[in-house]
Design a protein around this nucleic acid. Sequence first.
DNA 1: ACAGAATGTCTAGCATTGCTACAATGGCGA
DNA 2: TCGCCATTGTAGCAATGCTAGACATTCTGT
Lengths: 192, 192
Amino acid sequence: MSAISERRERERAHRHQLIITAARELAETEGWEAVTTRRLAERVEYSQPVLYSHFDGKDAIVSAVALDAFTELAAHLHRARQAAPGPGQALRAVGGAYLDFAVQRPALYQAMFILPTDLKFASAETPAPMRACFDEFVACFPPENERRELFAEVTWSALHGMAVLSESGRIPSGWQEERLDLLVTRFAGTAG
Amino acid sequence: MSAISERRERERAHRHQLIITAARELAETEGWEAVTTRRLAERVEYSQPVLYSHFDGKDAIVSAVALDAFTELAAHLHRARQAAPGPGQALRAVGGAYLDFAVQRPALYQAMFILPTDLKFASAETPAPMRACFDEFVACFPPENERRELFAEVTWSALHGMAVLSESGRIPSGWQEERLDLLVTRFAGTAG
DNA sequence: ACAGAATGTCTAGCATTGCTACAATGGCGA
DNA sequence: TCGCCATTGTAGCAATGCTAGACATTCTGT
């Protein structure tokens, strides 16, 4: 009874991931509004109810995709920060990478930061990848700065605002570089 | 044929506004997800199709509510800026008023800045109230600053990010005052 | 004043959504 | 081999945005 149920467990986990990647692919190619439970079920070649045996609902599936995406974003930001020529350039590098991610992977960005999800931000049980993302921003400021978290929150907010307002056409999308420059020069200066 | 059709026109305009205010009230008391075409029709005591004789669809109704709200936000920001003790305090006053609006009128804020709308931002045919809102941010920076618009875009983006990330629980909502302080001290300094 | 045209409104319905109750199937253990 | 239990699919619910067609009401021309 052990080996069999283990295999079942494996299969189940595999299918779990299959659903997540199918949802992600569908969202990335056709947008989240095209991700319906029916289309998703057809895509994984199962019927709808199996989705609900794996996830509490559609929001939970979005959350699962978002969680995966957080891991990737954290790595993306980390790479950018490491590649920065000096600590003074860290914020520019991370900010640029962040905006780049928002443009290159709009569906993932939506799942992470716009759509309603079950994910807990900024609390004790915040998943590690999410904290890692935030920490990349924090690491852009020197440890002497006692308000690093606050700096990170504000710069992140600014970048998020820029990303989402330009995506929805509320500010012209052609000047993101200049906006990033301005933000960085205003925040990367003296600690305080 | 003139007087009668004029009266009809009047009645029609009245009903048009009735729909908008009904949608707004419903959204403000129960949230936009409660604003369905059926409930809205029942509320204005007409059948659903009349909504579509006034608006192209639900998004257009949201847009109409948002447009009204822009007028109010512009006035709100303007009052705050006028009440600021000096030009150095303008940005703080306007930023504070902006965040206040986002918290006090979350449904309107959503309609204006989050939900998909038909409204044209940052273009020639941008409605006056929307431009007025943006101009309040621009006016927070001295005319000598040749990049006032850029400054306005970035500070607005930051405020929007703060508003939306705290509303959705992605950053703790208890530190908005501190974030605003930091943003203002970083941007209200020397022109440039 | 009255028939016909145009305008306006409602009833009823379509296709789609997220989600679920229930039945049937099929593989497991005894 | 038989019965049981988990797993999966069929079919359906209530709600959504939106619309076609019938109905009534008002206006126009004789």
